[in-house]
Amino acid sequence: MPTYIYKNLETGELYEFKQSMKDDAYTQHPETGAPVKRVISPPAITFKGSGFYVTDSRSSGSESGGDKSGGDKG
């Protein structure tokens, strides 16, 4: 189950709740009844560096997918 972050609209306090993706977002805190709103947060995983895009693994002149070993084919 994913963890969602909610912000209390009165105090600004942040809460984390585990909910199913099928559940509707809370409008009230389940225990206190205070009004809350779901906060969009960055993903927990970040891809950095080269190698994550198709263009990163190709050399600048070879789009045909030919032999890259540089050996003699004769």
Rank of each mutant, 00 (worst) to 15 (best):
F17G: 00
F17M: 00
K18T: 09
K18W: 00
S20Q: 07
S20F: 09
S20Y: 06
S20E: 09
M21K: 13
M21F: 14
M21H: 12
K22N: 11
K22W: 11
K22A: 13
D24H: 05
D24N: 11
D24V: 05
D24L: 08
A25L: 05
A25Q: 02
A25H: 02
Y26V: 02
Y26E: 01
T27V: 14
T27Q: 15
Q28W: 01
Q28V: 08
H29L: 10
H29F: 09
H29M: 08
H29S: 08
P30H: 04
P30Q: 05
E31M: 06
E31R: 08
E31K: 11
E31L: 09
E31H: 05
T32S: 15
T32F: 08
T32R: 04
T32H: 03
G33T: 02
A34P: 00
A34L: 05
A34Y: 01
A34E: 05
P35M: 03
V36L: 03
V36M: 01
K37M: 09
K37A: 12
K37T: 13
R38S: 04
R38Q: 14
I40D: 12
I40L: 06
I40H: 04
I40A: 10
S41T: 15
S41Y: 10
S41N: 04
P42S: 10
P42D: 05
P42G: 04
P43E: 12
P43F: 10
P43Q: 12
P43K: 09
A44S: 14
T46S: 12
T46P: 00
F47H: 05
F47R: 05
F47E: 07
K48D: 03
K48G: 00
S50F: 15
G51E: 04
G51N: 08
G51Y: 09
G51R: 05
F52T: 08
F52G: 12
F52V: 04
Y53L: 14
Y53T: 12
Y53V: 03
V54F: 10
V54P: 00
V54T: 07
D56R: 06
D56K: 02
S57V: 14
R58N: 11
R58A: 12
S59I: 06
S60M: 09
S60T: 10
S60Q: 10
S62V: 09
S62G: 03
S62P: 00
S62F: 08
E63Y: 15
E63P: 01
S64L: 15
S64R: 13
S64M: 13
G65T: 07
G65D: 10
G65W: 11
G66E: 14
D67P: 04
D67Y: 11
K68D: 15
K68T: 14
K68A: 15
S69Q: 07
S69C: 02
S69V: 02
G70D: 08
G70I: 10
